[in-house]
Structures are given as structure tokens and as C-alpha cells.
């Protein structure tokens, strides 16, 4: 009985892992398959689809997405650091309520936020800001709460005695921020920024409302295209953008060192 149970458990467990991995594996295989028929005969695999990405049809949306994601990451990093500093570090009066406000966009579905922003821009006569500015504003609303949460966590974990130690050693307010607080919460800031970058780069529901002809992000371009066909070039686009994301994470990690924080230690 208990043997049967444990066999059943491992079968189910393996099935779930397979379920998780399968679509990713299939897309990887599709991106190197010679025809639209996905094949695992690896001796026939080819990189020709990746070569075909080198046209403005795919490069332009990619550059726009990367640009927006980078701007969004930086702005939400700054905004969230400021917010978290007041709320989680200085604990200004009413900090709990302000924190809830900073996190409140999380409670609203993205598609609802999208409707709200597009209605706002159009009725405020700001319709011309659809496209890049609108996308940046929309994505920031989406990413600031995540970044606030991550940076606030590292501020809550900050030992206030370090600030007092620096103070009694003669450090001014700015010196304490510069030499003690910022270096220690840097991993939190960078993980918040990385998160913001990924969310912005992959975003569909908000971008749907905010793109305009000629200013479309990569995911929107992809889904518009694949409503009509399952061209293997789509697999190549997807794999390429996943590789790009991984490269960005690697880069941010090298600068910010946030895996350290994720694993729960410091130096």
C-alpha cells in the first residue's frame, strides 16, 4: 500500500516537472527545427530562423521593448528606493497606510489598469502620449509596487545600529546614506530593478492598450503575428528574448549581487 503510494507520488511528481518543462523544450526545439514541423532529430537542426530575425520588423520592437524596460527599471528603482526609505527605514508617521498605498496597484488586475490609463490619457487630451511615454508610465505603475516591496524588505532587515555606529563615528547624514545604507541595500535595489525590467519587457496586458502603430513592443508584435500563423520564426523570437532576459539578469547580478540576498546572507 505505502509502496504503491510512493510510486504514485513520484509518477505524479515527474509528470508535473514534465508539464512545466514541456512547452519551453518544445519552443526551443521549434526554434531550431528546419520546418514548421517541430522535430527532435537534432542532426537536422538549424539556426536559420535566428538569422531571419535581423530585420527591422523584429529589431525595432525589440529595441523599443529593451529601451522601455531599461527606463522603467531605473525610474522604478529610484521611486521605490525613495518610497521605501520614508516608509520602511525612517518609518514616518502613518507608514503602514502609505505602504498600502504604494502597494495598492498590485490589487488591481493589469487589464483594468490598462483601461483606466487609456481612458485617462484620452479624456485628458493626452492621446498623443500613447506609445513610448504611455508605455513607460503604465509599466512604472506596474513595477513600482514590486520594487517597493523588495527594497523595503532590505530596509526592514537593515540593522539600525549600523547607522548609529556610523553616526557616533562622525558620519553626516549623507555620508551614512552613501557609505552605509546604500551599499547594504544595493542587492535589494538591484533585485527590484531586475524584476521591473523583466515585468516590463515581457508585459502584454497593459502594453496592449498603450502601443500605437510603429511603436509596438516585442511581445505585442509577437502575439499579433501569431494570431495568424505559427511560423517557426516566432519560436526564434521567443528564444532570443528569453536569452536576452537571462543576459540582463546576469548583468544586473554582476553589478548588484542580489543572489546573495535571495539566499539569505550577506558577505
Amino acid at each position: 500500500m505505502s509502496k504503491l503510494l510512493s510510486v504514485g507520488y513520484w509518477v505524479f511528481f515527474s509528470f508535473i516537472l514534465l508539464f512545466i518543462a514541456l512547452p519551453m523544450v518544445v519552443v526551443l526545439a521549434a526554434s531550431v527545427s528546419p520546418t514548421s514541423h517541430v522535430t527532435f532529430e537534432f542532426w537536422t537542426w538549424t539556426l536559420e530562423w535566428f538569422g531571419k530575425l535581423w530585420t527591422s520588423k523584429w529589431l525595432d520592437p525589440f529595441i523599443l521593448s529593451a529601451k522601455i524596460a531599461a527606463i522603467v527599471a531605473v525610474i522604478s528603482g529610484v521611486l521605490a528606493t525613495l518610497g521605501a526609505y520614508a516608509v520602511a527605514y525612517e518609518k514616518c508617521p502613518g507608514h503602514d497606510a502609505i505602504m498600502s498605498f504604494l502597494l495598492s496597484p498590485l490589487a488591481v488586475p493589469q487589464i483594468v489598469k490598462g483601461v483606466a490609463i487609456v481612458l485617462f490619457l484620452s479624456s485628458a487630451g493626452l492621446f498623443r502620449y500613447l506609445g513610448t511615454p504611455g508605455l513607460i508610465a503604465g509599466h512604472i505603475i506596474l513595477t513600482v509596487p514590486f520594487a517597493v516591496r523588495m527594497i523595503a524588505t532590505s530596509m526592514y532587515n537593515f540593522d539600525k545600529n549600523l547607522d548609529r555606529a556610523a553616526r557616533i563615528l562622525g558620519a553626516s547624514w549623507w555620508q551614512r546614506i552613501r557609505y552605509v545604507l546604500l551599499p547594504l541595500i544595493k542587492p535589494g535595489i538591484f533585485s527590484g530593478m531586475t524584476f521591473a525590467f523583466i515585468i516590463s519587457f515581457n508585459n502584454v496586458p497593459l502594453s496592449l492598450f498603450l502601443v500605437r502603430p510603429g511603436q509596438s513592443t516585442l511581445p505585442i508584435t509577437v502575439i499579433n503575428y501569431f494570431e495568424y500563423s505559427l511560423d517557426p520564426i516566432l519560436a526564434a523570437v521567443n528564444v532570443a528574448s528569453l536569452l536576452f532576459i537571462l543576459a540582463v539578469i546576469f548583468l544586473f547580478e554582476r553589478i548588484g549581487g542580489f543572489t546573495v540576498q535571495i539566499h539569505g546572507g550577506s558577505k
Partner: peptide
């Protein structure tokens, strides 16, 4: 103690403008 709220001005303004206000309008 009002100085404690100064860093909140940018994030709160942005959230008000592009989240709270549009939600209210909608």
C-alpha cells in the same frame, strides 16, 4: 517631522497621477 515625507513626493505623485486618478475616472 514633515521632512520625513519629502522622499515620498515623487513616488506618491506618480502613483496618484497614473493610477489613483485614472482608476477614479474609470
Amino acid at each position: 517631522s514633515l521632512r520625513g515625507y519629502v522622499p515620498l513626493i515623487p513616488p506618491v505623485t506618480i502613483l496618484m497621477m497614473f493610477f489613483a486618478l485614472p482608476m477614479g475616472m474609470m
